[in-house]
Nucleic acid binder design. Structure first.
Lengths: 307, 307
DNA sequence: GTGAAAGCGCTAACAC
DNA sequence: GTGTTAGCGCTTTCAC
């Protein structure tokens, strides 16, 4: 008691390295982000930080730049610095590094993307439901020739959204035209632009295009601009994620809103749970997305694209 | 030699906590970001990471949410975790925490914003030159009644840009009308929207508005939309920073581009320099911004705002 | 080159 | 409550 008062008076602050060395715990969580410049991720990080901060945990952020070797280095740097666990937005469907980590007993939760194996707990949104709502929205407007700009198939988001598009197309009574589906190598604008140009080049008619995320949709905007195609008059465009600032675009992008903040917050809660009761069976969360209709979609006109 | 081979074979990895405890060095830099959801900052972070990574340093990111007490907690958490120094984008013109830290010998570089005291090294862009180029651009188009939406005056960026606006206005032979200057409490969209509404409410005529950063300019877009004012026909709008995605807006925003990546990269270099030669006199860097003319500015029409 | 020993600042365990 | 001790895993020093 007396000694504690004195310590406080002298401004004593425990050294966390020494404490960590001794206890093997650090009340610190490492967060691996695939690309901070993608506006999708900062709101997720905010959700993580808020929850962890509330229980006295510190968040250590690291950027992997979509680079496997950088990811491994950052992962190890964090691990060697004694973090208690990881929240990770970089998961591929097959992910040797994380699968091995999980096997080795490293606490980890995947946010936004997940692996095919469900052994690692994850918090994702329902890609199937979200994509279906987009298809139904477009079909409801009268579109019957819908192109799809798919994301990387090695990512769960790229893969499941495409699968859902195929299923929803069939369910709506339309046929699948392989020529109207383009796969992209990454979720970035340049890829979206390239993809829509390729779709234009097929000469096939289509009145709407679904992009697997917002950045690909922005690329589609670019392609329209350079091709003289007017959105939504000539072509309806939709994205996915509802990242910030989409409402400021012209036209404002119709998209699917995933609960960014909640994905982060729930990931943090799940990880804390695993830390406190490691024996409990791992569980994953699937959050609901919502359709956000803005100005980039409308009923198809008798556009030149239509046939 | 033999023992080293064996160590490698067994997959030995040094524990950084123990090493840090012993050596008091960690090859780790703490980065304090005021708000990750502001798209201005991720490119700066990327510049920092690239440079630090190149010399084997690890970057530990933390978000302060523009919250002083959170800033202090994050700062201490990083310090107690043995970081070798800080790069900080949260500086206020008066900043007791950082001034004290600098006095206590903590290595630190301010990025993007700086304190009034030059005792702490900083890497900023030339707010005076950037703002002047905006005024000259507008004057060159024929504008002579220009409103100003100012940022927080406790931030160097808010303060120096406003000072530069006043100076450039005088230099261009115009008079300063206090009613056409509105101060904002933060660099966020809502504040920009509120500010432009207040300017509209004065009933004074103006044909252009300079916002102290891009987010405030986006808020001005919102205000125009709800007031039925068309940009740029009725009102030219400019921002500052050239954050990502501005080229996708309608109209695309005329702004001043600051070298985001370089601000980060040079901050990192400066900090590394201080770490290796702590005795050298601290120096600061002022980088050049460039005017980026897009669609949100044009010659003034005989708009209803004009008188 | 290798081996042994001390100590960085803390916590956990035990005696008081 | 307080004092003492050992030891977390590393680096540094000194002897070999």
């Amino acid at each position: 008691m007396r000694v504690q008062k004195a310590a406080k008076k002298l401004g004593y602050v425990p050294n966390l390295l020494a404490r960590g060395l001794k206890t093997n715990r650090s009340a610190t969580i490492g967060v691996l982000i695939s690309d901070l410049t993608n506006p999708l991720f900062p709101p997720i990080v905010r959700g993580i930080e808020d929850v962890l901060d509330g229980v006295g945990f510190t968040t250590l952020l690291a950027n992997t730049d979509n680079d496997d070797s950088l990811e491994q280095r950052r992962y190890e740097a964090l691990l060697r610095r004694g973090v208690d666990g990881f929240i990770v937005t970089t998961a591929h469907r097959q992910h040797p590094l994380f699968e091995q980590a999980a096997k080795a007993g490293v606490a980890m939760v995947l946010a936004n993307r997940r692996t095919d194996s469900v052994a690692i707990p994850s918090v994702t949104s329902d890609d199937e439901a979200g994509t279906r709502s987009l298809v139904e929205h477009l079909v409801g407007l009268g579109h019957c020739r819908i192109a799809y700009v798919a994301g990387p198939q090695f990512l769960s988001t790229g893969y499941y959204r495409l699968q859902a598009f195929l299923a929803a197309t069939i369910a709506s009574g339309m046929k699948i035209d392989d020529d109207l589906i383009v796969l992209c190598d990454s979720f970035r604008e340049v890829e979206g632009e390239r993809a829509l140009h390729r779709l234009f080049a097929t000469g096939k008619g289509f009145t709407a295009v679904i992009a697997a995320n917002d950045l690909l949709a922005l690329g589609c905007y670019d392609a329209c601009r350079s091709a003289g195609v007017v959105c939504p008059d000539d072509l309806s465009i939709v994205g996915y994620n509802d990242m910030p600032f989409l409402d400021k675009l012209q036209p404002a992008l119709t998209t699917v809103r995933i609960p960014h903040y909640d994905i982060g917050a729930e990931s943090a809660r799940l990880l804390l749970e695993r830390l406190t009761s490691p024996e409990a069976p791992p569980k994953s969360l699937l959050l609901n997305p919502t359709l956000v209709v803005r100005g980039s979609t409308c009923a198809p006109s008798s556009s030149r694209l239509l046939h």
